[in-house]
């Protein structure tokens, strides 16, 4: 029995020692985490991270096919590179991690460009605009935020950029906060607040689908853009992507993309304000 115990102890020590070595293992001998443009072409497959549940930007239809504004662009990238496209389903919270580990080559998941994110990943040229918008009932369309009547409340969803923006820039406007999109929508319909502020894509879609509402302020706050992102330092792929976006501008590719994927949700009126063509922000 003693002997058996000793053998077990030795075996476990080795196992633990191995595990510790593995954990403390050095990463310096590794090359870059990402794949260069040539490596992607050689392998014949490009991994692109997209949303699989954000209609109409990246989603999966009832036949199990990826669809949407981002996906339309992803398909074109693969086609022009002459490689097969492998979709990776990403979440908002793990997009940066995917690029930092090189588990995807490009993220095309409605990725808003921010200075903090730009320190972690490299953004290519933008292909879409985002801003905040304010929707209100037709009976009393809110078109300006000046001279706000302090008795009236603005509906926002907690944790969104709209909430932060109003708290910082319009501290005098009383906010009515809701946790979910569905609750905010109910509040708007019940007239609990005079207007609803959210991403402009969201309020535009709401006004189009619900009779009797108008987007009085279609663009508010800082104009942000949406762009593809690659792993930090992946120059070859970044340069190719920028060239691709510029070249696609000549054929009005993103307008065609909008008309194929977004027009049902946002209508033609917002095409010019949402689409960024050739990477040039007007």
């Amino acid at each position: 029995m003693k002997k058996l115990n000793r053998i077990i102890a030795i075996a476990l020590t080795f196992a633990l020692a191995f595990a510790l070595c593995a954990c403390g293992g050095s990463k310096k001998e590794e090359g870059p985490v990402y794949r260069t443009l040539d490596e992607i072409k050689q392998s014949g497959v490009i991994n692109i991270g997209v949303f699989s549940d954000k209609n109409p930007f990246g989603y999966v239809d009832e036949n199990g096919e990826y669809q949407g504004y981002d996906v339309y662009f992803a398909q074109r990238i693969a086609e022009d590179l002459g490689v097969k496209l492998n979709y990776v389903s990403t979440e908002a919270a793990n997009r940066i991690e995917y690029l930092q580990t090189g588990k995807v080559d490009i993220i095309l998941a409605n990725f808003t460009v921010t200075p903090q994110r730009a320190e972690e990943v490299d953004f290519a040229l933008p292909y879409m605009n985002v801003a905040l918008g304010v929707v209100s009932p037709d009976a009393k369309v809110i078109e300006t935020l000046d001279n706000w009547n302090a008795d009236e409340q603005m509906i926002v969803i907690s944790g969104t950029t709209a909430e932060t923006y109003f708290t910082e820039n319009y501290p005098d406007i009383p906010l009515q906060k809701y946790d979910t999109y569905a609750n905010a929508k109910n509040a708007m319909e019940n007239g609990n607040g005079v207007a609803w502020a959210n991403d402009n894509t969201e309020v535009i879609a709401f006004a189009l689908q619900n009779e009797g509402y108008t987007v009085g302020i279609p663009s508010l706050g800082s104009q942000d853009t949406i762009a593809p992102a690659v792993s930090k330092g992946n120059e070859t792929l970044l340069n190719w992507l920028n060239g691709e976006i510029e070249a696609l501008g000549a054929e009005n590719f993103f307008h065609a993309d909008y008309e194929a994927t977004l027009v049902d949700t946002y209508g033609l009126d917002y095409e010019e304000s949402l689409v960024v063509e050739g990477g040039i922000i007007k």
Binding site: A22, G25, K27, E30, V33, E97, Q100, T101, G102, K103
Partner: peptide
Amino acid sequence: YFGSTRAFG
């Protein structure tokens, strides 16, 4: 998932 790629590739 991510750690093993970061640490050992």
